[in-house]
Protein backbone atom coordinates (compact mmCIF):
# COMPACT_ATOMS: atom_id res chain seq x y z
CA UNK A 1 0.00 0.00 0.00
CA UNK A 2 1.24 3.36 -0.94
CA UNK A 3 1.71 6.23 1.42
CA UNK A 4 -0.78 8.18 -0.68
CA UNK A 5 -3.39 5.54 -0.12
CA UNK A 6 -2.83 5.82 3.60
CA UNK A 7 -3.29 9.55 3.37
CA UNK A 8 -6.48 9.01 1.45
CA UNK A 9 -7.90 6.70 4.12
CA UNK A 10 -6.83 9.10 6.79
CA UNK A 11 -8.47 12.15 5.24
CA UNK A 12 -11.64 10.18 4.52
CA UNK A 13 -11.70 9.00 8.14
CA UNK A 14 -11.19 12.48 9.52
CA UNK A 15 -13.90 13.79 7.25
CA UNK A 16 -16.26 11.12 8.56
CA UNK A 17 -15.50 12.13 12.15
CA UNK A 18 -15.97 15.78 11.37
CA UNK A 19 -19.29 15.07 9.73
CA UNK A 20 -20.74 13.46 12.84
CA UNK A 21 -23.23 15.89 14.35
CA UNK A 22 -24.09 14.10 17.52
CA UNK A 23 -22.85 11.44 19.87
CA UNK A 24 -24.59 8.56 18.11
CA UNK A 25 -23.21 9.56 14.69
CA UNK A 26 -19.83 9.83 16.34
CA UNK A 27 -20.22 6.36 17.80
CA UNK A 28 -21.18 5.02 14.33
CA UNK A 29 -18.09 6.66 12.86
CA UNK A 30 -15.95 5.19 15.62
CA UNK A 31 -17.22 1.70 14.87
CA UNK A 32 -16.86 2.20 11.12
CA UNK A 33 -13.28 3.39 11.52
CA UNK A 34 -11.84 1.72 14.57
CA UNK A 35 -14.14 -1.30 15.02
CA UNK A 36 -12.92 -4.84 14.26
CA UNK A 37 -13.75 -4.36 10.64
CA UNK A 38 -13.27 -0.63 10.60
CA UNK A 39 -11.45 0.90 7.66
CA UNK A 40 -8.63 2.20 9.81
CA UNK A 41 -8.34 -1.08 11.71
CA UNK A 42 -8.12 -2.98 8.46
CA UNK A 43 -5.10 -0.92 7.38
CA UNK A 44 -2.85 -3.02 9.61
CA UNK A 45 -3.68 -6.13 7.57
CA UNK A 46 -1.98 -4.58 4.54
CA UNK A 47 1.33 -5.05 6.32
CA UNK A 48 1.58 -8.58 4.90
CA UNK A 49 1.85 -7.15 1.41
CA UNK A 50 4.60 -4.77 2.39
CA UNK A 51 8.19 -5.83 1.87
CA UNK A 52 9.76 -6.78 5.17
CA UNK A 53 12.20 -3.94 5.33
CA UNK A 54 9.50 -1.36 4.81
CA UNK A 55 7.25 -2.91 7.35
CA UNK A 56 8.60 -0.80 10.19
CA UNK A 57 7.86 2.45 8.39
CA UNK A 58 4.47 1.20 7.26
CA UNK A 59 3.52 0.20 10.78
CA UNK A 60 4.43 3.62 12.09
CA UNK A 61 2.48 5.29 9.30
CA UNK A 62 -0.62 3.21 10.07
CA UNK A 63 -0.28 4.03 13.76
CA UNK A 64 -0.06 7.70 12.92
CA UNK A 65 -3.31 7.41 11.00
CA UNK A 66 -4.97 5.61 13.93
CA UNK A 67 -3.68 8.16 16.37
CA UNK A 68 -4.95 10.99 14.23
CA UNK A 69 -8.38 9.40 14.04
CA UNK A 70 -8.55 8.76 17.79
CA UNK A 71 -7.54 12.33 18.47
CA UNK A 72 -10.12 13.58 16.04
CA UNK A 73 -12.77 11.48 17.77
CA UNK A 74 -11.77 12.78 21.20
CA UNK A 75 -11.75 16.30 19.95
CA UNK A 76 -15.12 15.88 18.29
CA UNK A 77 -16.52 14.45 21.51
CA UNK A 78 -15.24 17.36 23.52
CA UNK A 79 -16.72 19.73 21.02
CA UNK A 80 -20.06 18.02 21.16
CA UNK A 81 -20.04 18.00 24.99
CA UNK A 82 -19.08 21.65 25.06
CA UNK A 83 -21.87 22.46 22.64
CA UNK A 84 -24.32 20.48 24.76
CA UNK A 85 -23.23 22.29 27.93
CA UNK A 86 -23.48 25.62 26.20
CA UNK A 87 -26.87 24.74 24.86
CA UNK A 88 -28.10 23.80 28.39
CA UNK A 89 -26.62 26.97 29.76
CA UNK A 90 -28.30 28.97 27.03
CA UNK A 91 -31.60 27.22 27.55
CA UNK A 92 -34.23 29.58 28.97
CA UNK A 93 -37.12 27.14 28.93
CA UNK A 94 -36.43 25.64 32.37
CA UNK A 95 -39.21 26.81 34.68
CA UNK A 96 -38.06 27.31 38.25
CA UNK A 97 -41.42 28.68 39.26
CA UNK A 98 -43.20 25.36 38.99
CA UNK A 99 -44.64 24.45 42.43
CA UNK A 100 -42.56 22.24 44.74
CA UNK A 101 -43.48 18.62 45.09
CA UNK A 102 -43.42 17.86 48.79
CA UNK A 103 -42.83 14.61 50.58
CA UNK A 104 -46.12 13.70 52.28
CA UNK A 105 -45.77 15.58 55.54
CA UNK A 106 -48.07 16.16 58.44
CA UNK A 107 -48.40 19.05 60.83
CA UNK A 108 -48.14 19.68 64.52
CA UNK A 109 -51.04 21.43 66.17
CA UNK A 110 -50.25 25.13 66.72
CA UNK A 111 -51.00 24.71 70.39
CA UNK A 112 -48.45 21.91 70.64
CA UNK A 113 -45.92 24.06 68.87
CA UNK A 114 -46.35 26.97 71.23
CA UNK A 115 -46.54 24.69 74.26
CA UNK A 116 -43.35 22.87 73.32
CA UNK A 117 -41.52 26.12 72.78
CA UNK A 118 -42.61 27.32 76.21
CA UNK A 119 -41.62 24.03 77.79
CA UNK A 120 -38.18 24.31 76.23
CA UNK A 121 -37.81 27.79 77.63
CA UNK A 122 -38.73 26.59 81.09
CA UNK A 123 -36.52 23.53 80.95
CA UNK A 124 -33.62 25.79 80.06
CA UNK A 125 -34.46 27.92 83.11
CA UNK A 126 -34.35 24.93 85.43
CA UNK A 127 -38.05 24.12 85.69
CA UNK A 128 -39.61 20.72 86.00
CA UNK A 129 -42.24 20.16 83.33
CA UNK A 130 -45.11 18.08 84.63
CA UNK A 131 -48.44 16.88 83.43
CA UNK A 132 -51.36 16.36 85.79
CA UNK A 133 -54.81 14.84 85.77
CA UNK A 134 -57.77 16.39 84.01
CA UNK A 135 -60.50 14.72 86.05
CA UNK A 136 -59.85 16.09 89.52
CA UNK A 137 -61.47 16.12 92.92
CA UNK A 138 -62.96 19.06 94.73
CA UNK A 139 -60.13 19.09 97.22
CA UNK A 140 -57.36 19.67 94.69
CA UNK A 141 -59.31 21.95 92.40
CA UNK A 142 -60.88 24.14 95.08
CA UNK A 143 -60.50 23.44 98.78
CA UNK A 144 -56.74 23.04 98.90
CA UNK A 145 -56.50 26.20 96.81
CA UNK A 146 -58.28 28.22 99.47
CA UNK A 147 -61.62 28.13 97.64
CA UNK A 148 -63.94 26.41 100.12
CA UNK A 149 -67.46 25.34 99.24
CA UNK A 150 -69.83 28.29 98.76
CA UNK A 151 -66.94 30.67 98.19
CA UNK A 152 -68.04 33.29 95.66
CA UNK A 153 -64.83 32.73 93.73
CA UNK A 154 -66.35 29.45 92.63
CA UNK A 155 -68.55 31.55 90.36
CA UNK A 156 -65.50 32.32 88.27
CA UNK A 157 -65.06 28.62 87.78
CA UNK A 158 -68.22 27.35 86.19
CA UNK A 159 -67.54 23.71 86.76
CA UNK A 160 -68.26 20.48 84.95
CA UNK A 161 -69.21 17.87 87.53
CA UNK A 162 -69.31 14.15 87.02
CA UNK A 163 -72.20 12.08 88.33
CA UNK A 164 -69.99 10.79 91.12
CA UNK A 165 -69.04 14.29 92.29
CA UNK A 166 -65.64 14.49 90.69
CA UNK A 167 -64.96 17.42 88.42
CA UNK A 168 -63.06 18.47 85.34
CA UNK A 169 -60.30 20.75 86.54
CA UNK A 170 -61.25 24.37 85.97
CA UNK A 171 -57.64 25.49 85.98
CA UNK A 172 -54.17 23.97 86.03
CA UNK A 173 -53.74 25.15 89.63
CA UNK A 174 -54.51 21.76 91.25
CA UNK A 175 -51.05 20.92 89.91
CA UNK A 176 -49.66 23.30 92.54
CA UNK A 177 -50.89 21.03 95.30
CA UNK A 178 -49.76 17.87 93.53
CA UNK A 179 -46.34 19.34 92.77
CA UNK A 180 -45.80 20.57 96.32
CA UNK A 181 -46.74 17.15 97.64
CA UNK A 182 -44.35 15.25 95.42
CA UNK A 183 -41.37 17.49 94.68
CA UNK A 184 -38.71 18.20 97.26
CA UNK A 185 -38.48 21.97 97.84
CA UNK A 186 -36.91 24.20 96.71
CA UNK A 187 -38.09 23.69 93.14
CA UNK A 188 -39.55 25.35 90.09
CA UNK A 189 -42.11 23.64 87.95
CA UNK A 190 -44.55 24.31 85.14
CA UNK A 191 -47.54 22.19 84.24
CA UNK A 192 -49.39 22.86 81.02
CA UNK A 193 -52.67 21.21 80.17
CA UNK A 194 -56.29 21.14 79.26
CA UNK A 195 -58.83 22.85 81.51
CA UNK A 196 -62.60 22.93 81.39
CA UNK A 197 -65.23 25.55 82.09
CA UNK A 198 -68.93 24.93 82.01
CA UNK A 199 -69.86 27.59 79.48
CA UNK A 200 -71.41 27.86 76.06
CA UNK A 201 -69.00 28.19 73.17
CA UNK A 202 -68.72 30.97 70.64
CA UNK A 203 -65.89 32.62 68.73
CA UNK A 204 -64.20 33.74 71.93
CA UNK A 205 -65.36 31.14 74.46
CA UNK A 206 -64.56 27.46 74.65
CA UNK A 207 -65.49 25.04 77.39
CA UNK A 208 -62.16 23.31 76.82
CA UNK A 209 -58.96 25.30 76.58
CA UNK A 210 -55.31 25.15 77.63
CA UNK A 211 -53.38 26.81 80.40
CA UNK A 212 -49.86 26.75 81.68
CA UNK A 213 -49.27 26.99 85.40
CA UNK A 214 -45.96 27.75 87.06
CA UNK A 215 -44.83 27.40 90.63
CA UNK A 216 -41.67 28.22 92.49
CA UNK A 217 -41.10 27.19 96.09
CA UNK A 218 -38.14 28.46 98.05
CA UNK A 219 -37.20 29.60 101.53
CA UNK A 220 -37.47 33.27 100.78
CA UNK A 221 -39.72 34.54 98.04
CA UNK A 222 -40.77 38.16 97.58
CA UNK A 223 -42.86 40.26 95.24
CA UNK A 224 -39.57 41.57 93.86
CA UNK A 225 -38.58 38.00 92.94
CA UNK A 226 -41.93 37.41 91.31
CA UNK A 227 -41.62 40.63 89.37
CA UNK A 228 -38.20 39.65 88.09
CA UNK A 229 -39.21 36.08 87.27
CA UNK A 230 -42.26 37.19 85.29
CA UNK A 231 -40.19 39.73 83.40
CA UNK A 232 -37.54 37.18 82.45
CA UNK A 233 -40.09 34.51 81.65
CA UNK A 234 -42.24 36.70 79.43
CA UNK A 235 -39.21 38.11 77.64
CA UNK A 236 -38.12 34.53 76.96
CA UNK A 237 -41.55 33.56 75.72
CA UNK A 238 -41.74 36.45 73.29
CA UNK A 239 -38.05 36.44 72.44
CA UNK A 240 -37.62 40.12 73.18
CA UNK A 241 -36.98 42.27 76.23
CA UNK A 242 -40.38 43.21 77.61
CA UNK A 243 -41.67 45.70 80.12
CA UNK A 244 -44.22 44.28 82.51
CA UNK A 245 -46.30 45.66 85.31
CA UNK A 246 -48.05 44.04 88.25
CA UNK A 247 -51.35 45.31 89.56
CA UNK A 248 -53.78 43.90 92.10
CA UNK A 249 -55.70 40.85 90.96
CA UNK A 250 -57.79 38.48 92.96
CA UNK A 251 -57.10 34.76 93.00
CA UNK A 252 -57.91 33.05 96.30
CA UNK A 253 -54.81 30.84 96.19
CA UNK A 254 -52.33 33.70 96.18
CA UNK A 255 -51.80 36.61 98.54
CA UNK A 256 -50.99 39.15 97.34
CA UNK A 257 -52.40 38.39 93.91
CA UNK A 258 -51.63 40.18 90.68
CA UNK A 259 -52.63 40.66 87.14
CA UNK A 260 -49.45 40.87 85.11
CA UNK A 261 -49.62 43.15 82.10
CA UNK A 262 -47.13 43.24 79.26
CA UNK A 263 -46.38 46.52 77.56
CA UNK A 264 -48.08 46.34 74.18
CA UNK A 265 -45.66 44.95 71.62
CA UNK A 266 -47.62 46.47 68.75
CA UNK A 267 -47.43 50.10 69.80
CA UNK A 268 -44.67 49.94 72.41
CA UNK A 269 -46.99 51.38 75.02
CA UNK A 270 -48.23 54.39 73.09
CA UNK A 271 -51.70 52.88 72.76
CA UNK A 272 -53.32 51.11 69.84
CA UNK A 273 -56.34 49.02 68.96
CA UNK A 274 -54.79 45.77 70.22
CA UNK A 275 -54.18 47.12 73.72
CA UNK A 276 -57.45 49.06 73.70
CA UNK A 277 -55.36 52.24 73.82
CA UNK A 278 -54.04 51.47 77.27
CA UNK A 279 -50.51 50.59 76.20
CA UNK A 280 -50.75 47.32 78.15
CA UNK A 281 -52.03 43.85 77.44
CA UNK A 282 -53.22 41.69 80.33
CA UNK A 283 -51.24 38.53 80.12
CA UNK A 284 -51.37 36.35 83.17
CA UNK A 285 -52.39 36.08 86.79
CA UNK A 286 -49.81 35.48 89.49
CA UNK A 287 -49.03 36.02 93.13
CA UNK A 288 -47.29 34.76 96.23
CA UNK A 289 -48.65 31.38 97.25
CA UNK A 290 -51.26 31.79 99.99
CA UNK A 291 -50.16 30.31 103.34
CA UNK A 292 -53.36 28.23 103.45
CA UNK A 293 -52.35 26.65 100.13
CA UNK A 294 -48.87 25.86 101.39
CA UNK A 295 -50.40 24.30 104.47
CA UNK A 296 -52.88 22.19 102.55
CA UNK A 297 -49.99 20.92 100.45
CA UNK A 298 -48.11 19.95 103.59
CA UNK A 299 -45.55 22.78 103.59
CA UNK A 300 -44.92 24.99 106.59
CA UNK A 301 -45.54 28.63 105.55
CA UNK A 302 -42.98 29.80 108.09
CA UNK A 303 -40.35 27.74 106.34
CA UNK A 304 -41.41 27.79 102.68
CA UNK A 305 -42.79 30.46 100.43
CA UNK A 306 -43.53 30.56 96.78
CA UNK A 307 -44.97 32.27 93.81
CA UNK A 308 -47.29 30.90 91.19
CA UNK A 309 -48.58 32.05 87.85
CA UNK A 310 -51.13 30.83 85.34
CA UNK A 311 -51.34 31.86 81.73
CA UNK A 312 -53.79 31.04 78.98
CA UNK A 313 -52.02 28.94 76.36
CA UNK A 314 -54.97 28.96 73.98
CA UNK A 315 -55.08 32.72 74.19
CA UNK A 316 -51.35 32.96 73.58
CA UNK A 317 -51.68 30.77 70.49
CA UNK A 318 -54.51 32.95 69.22
CA UNK A 319 -52.49 36.10 69.84
CA UNK A 320 -49.43 34.68 68.20
CA UNK A 321 -51.11 33.57 64.98
CA UNK A 322 -53.93 36.12 64.93
CA UNK A 323 -56.57 33.40 65.21
CA UNK A 324 -59.93 35.08 65.63
CA UNK A 325 -62.08 32.08 66.51
CA UNK A 326 -61.13 29.90 69.47
CA UNK A 327 -63.27 27.04 68.18
CA UNK A 328 -60.63 26.27 65.55
CA UNK A 329 -58.27 25.04 68.26
CA UNK A 330 -60.40 22.03 69.12
CA UNK A 331 -62.08 21.86 65.72
CA UNK A 332 -59.93 19.26 63.91
CA UNK A 333 -60.28 20.99 60.55
CA UNK A 334 -57.41 20.18 58.18
CA UNK A 335 -57.88 23.45 56.36
CA UNK A 336 -56.93 25.12 59.64
CA UNK A 337 -54.27 22.64 60.75
CA UNK A 338 -52.37 22.62 57.46
CA UNK A 339 -51.54 26.27 57.99
CA UNK A 340 -49.19 25.39 60.83
CA UNK A 341 -46.67 23.07 59.19
Amino acid sequence: MEQSQLEEVKSAALAQVMAAEDESALRDAEVALLGKKGTVSLLSRGISQVPPKERGAFGRAVNDVKKAVVEALTHAREGLREAAIQSELDDRSFDVTLPGIRPTGGTMHPLSQVQERLEETFIAMGYHVLDYLEVEDEFHNFEALNIPADHPARDMHDTFWTKDRLLLRTHTSPGQIRAMRTLEPPFRAVFPGKVFRYEAIDASHEHTFHQLEGLMIDRHVSVAHLNSSMQIMLSQIFGQELTIRLRPGYFPFVEPGFECDVQCMICGGAGCRVCKHSGWVEFLGCGLVHPNVLRSAGLDPDEWQGWAFGLGLSRLVMMQYGIDDIRHIMGGDLRFLRQFA
Binding site: S228, R245, L246
Partner: peptide
Protein backbone atom coordinates in the same frame (compact mmCIF):
# COMPACT_ATOMS: atom_id res chain seq x y z
CA UNK B 1 -46.01 47.33 92.59
CA UNK B 2 -44.16 49.21 89.88
CA UNK B 3 -42.13 50.80 92.66
CA UNK B 4 -40.79 47.43 93.73
CA UNK B 5 -37.57 46.85 91.78
CA UNK B 6 -37.31 43.36 90.29
CA UNK B 7 -34.82 41.12 92.01
CA UNK B 8 -33.69 37.81 90.56
CA UNK B 9 -34.56 34.88 92.83
CA UNK B 10 -31.75 32.82 94.26
CA UNK B 11 -30.77 30.03 91.94
CA UNK B 12 -32.18 26.62 92.70
CA UNK B 13 -29.06 24.51 92.78
CA UNK B 14 -30.62 21.15 92.08
CA UNK B 15 -31.12 20.48 88.40
CA UNK B 16 -34.63 19.31 87.65
Amino acid sequence: YSNIPPQAPSVVVKAP
